[in-house]
Design a protein around this nucleic acid. Structure first.
Lengths: 359, 359
DNA sequence: ATGAAAGCGCTAACAA
DNA sequence: TTGTTAGCGCTTTCAT
């Protein structure tokens, strides 16, 4: 009897009249054992309601059958849905999963990953804050830990990543607006304060430098769609709001709509911006879509309950979590093929916030 | 060097020129050690970037510094927000937390708790499916595991629970409607298919038998408010919809509004029912609140974005998770006072879906 | 096919 | 105050 009255493998072995090693072989499902021994051990385990100590197993084997998920904020809808996908895959393989929120703080992220490492997780899924600084992660990877990043990709690191097809999704959404006749289309997105977006002239248009990030890739898709349609890019029609200055979102919407030539359609790069745009436009008396069309990112419940219902590009959060976990388990099982960058498709859901521009 | 190139306490001891035990005392922060030894061990640990193996520590000490959270569905807003509260408390104490969704399946709940037990969690927070059958939980509790239930209470079990002040919140909300002049108030709630609510005549009114559950306690609050105001209880103004028949929600709203004397106000017992009521009433041409007032439970984002904004009773999910974790840690630290039933207050947020009844 | 024995990294008695 | 030693429960050689 070990941990608080639980039976140990020695109890089972004794009850079955075999050695610890034989009992372990049957219970662990490895090595050789005769039918007779199998039956006796199985019976003894059932009779004593035996459940192996995963801790002892981890200690000895080095594998814990646990993984970790470190995201910005588990109470955020996107992450909690992705978490569900991760858990479903993990649980199906007998794994348990640890979760921690990093609040977009590099320190918290670091201590979370370190803590999980000290619990010897077999793998880690995370949404890294900084796609630039990841030395501490590389150290874990070098030490043999399997890592998959979700929603973001590390720059210059050889870990797998799973992201939505952000740029292509944005190209399609903006192209759709162009096809309907819009010529002045605004883009409103968020930006990481630490790694602000840098727009640069490039020939006739603008180019967006820097690493791949959902917010930036969506802006890139916007620029690409304009370029492909030979439409001019107007710097005034592009707005980035720092994530730690949410009060600026409304200001940015107002600035854009107060332009001498305001946009006839607005494409927003994330759910917060979509919400701000919808609320601000409505509050300021703009009728959607007659006065201005709106296409947003992410499919939150409210987008179907307001009037008009909002046309959105949907990120498949559950699917992204599922794919990330599948990829992680492939690595845990020993797959050592080159790093992959999985693109999870998005869906364009047309509702009622888009129409052709007024004459 | 142990687990994939990590240093062990022996490495630190050797580097510091002391015994394993001394190094352990310094690193583990227990027992006696001289300043000199402390300094050398700390320096060695820092130099070698040492991080203790929590697995080995758990093995030896029996405490894992992990807890588990088993909820119905981690992608649900209520649970993911509660999870955040749990994590914040746990992480502040150096604990990691496992999460699993049970999908309201007794089998999944059972296998999830068993799995967590085999990982030797120091405590468990869960939202039990059945408040009646909990033999397997009692077994874990008897074996010394600390357990706190969240949002639901086990009937006839001595474990701590943390729930919203459902009945009182409902009394207040319904009383507010009564004070505004409403006499015919409808109640619409959800019910567990396995443990359906049983309404029974009791004197002049109706009584609701069965265990304490959020959905039932809210209905009880509704009944209590009517009773206290000496208003008659009309069975037709009470509707329960089974959770696995969501399509019946709309039917129930329509049935009630089609009554010869329809309600002038509706109180809904959960977020799903609130949503259905809002959508159905709007779709059917009822103007809220002129034709019918609406008070809902839970404060989801959409309730502030629709028109009219919905008056709600807010459950403080984060706070509930926080309180549950605090209680759990008190038990883990050895508190053996009698079981507590913590009531987390709700907030009544008046918005624009309520007014006095028409004449 | 089975058993004996070593040992994963740490903590906790105990001895010095 | 410090060091020695014995395990926690399991897996994994290595013999048999």
């Amino acid at each position: 009897m070990g941990r608080q009255g639980q039976h140990t493998i020695s109890d089972i072995a004794a009850a079955a009249g075999v050695s610890k090693a034989s009992a372990a072989r049957v219970l662990g499902g490895y090595g050789y054992s005769s039918k007779d021994v199998q039956a006796r051990v199985t019976a003894a385990a059932a009779a004593l309601n035996y459940s192996p100590s995963r801790i002892a197993r981890t200690m000895r084997s080095g594998r814990s059958t646990t993984i970790g998920f470190v995201c910005a904020d588990i109470s955020d809808a996107f992450f909690s849905i992705a978490m569900r996908g991760i858990c479903d895959v993990a649980n199906a393989s007998g794994y348990q999963v640890f979760v921690t929120s990093s609040d977009d703080s590099v320190d918290k992220e670091r201590s979370a990953t370190d803590a999980m490492d000290s619990h010897q997780v077999d793998g880690l899924i995370l949404t890294p804050i900084s796609v630039q600084e990841h030395a501490y992660l590389d150290r874990l990877v070098d030490a043999g830990l399997s890592v998959v990043t979700l929603d973001r990709q590390l720059k210059g690191s050889a870990v797998d990543s799973v992201v939505a097809d952000n740029q292509q999704a944005s190209v399609s959404a903006v192209r759709r607006l162009i096809d309907m006749g819009h010529r002045r289309i605004g883009f409103l997105g968020s930006a990481q304060p630490e790694e602000p977006p840098r727009l640069r002239r490039s020939g006739s248009g603008l180019r967006l430098d820097g690493p791949s990030r959902p917010s930036l890739d969506r802006a890139r898709g916007y620029l690409q769609a304009l370029r492909e349609a030979d439409l001019p890019v107007d710097r005034d029609l592009i707005g980035f709001v720092s994530q730690n200055e949410p009060e600026h979102r409304q200001q940015e919407v107002r600035r854009m709509m107060a332009l001498a030539e305001p946009p006839t359609a607005v494409f927003t790069g994330d759910s917060y911006m979509t919400r701000s745009a919808f609320v601000t436009l409505s509050a300021d008396g703009f009728v959607i879509p007659q006065d201005v069309s709106l296409v947003g990112f992410d499919d939150l419940e409210w987008t179907t309950l307001v009037s008009p219902q909002v046309t959105v590009v949907v990120q498949q959060a559950y699917e992204m979590g599922r794919v990330a976990a599948e990829q992680l388990f492939a690595r845990i099982r020993g797959d050592d093929s080159p790093p992959v960058r999985a693109l999870v498709p998005t869906r364009y859901v047309e509702r009622h916030s888009v129409s052709a521009p007024r004459s």
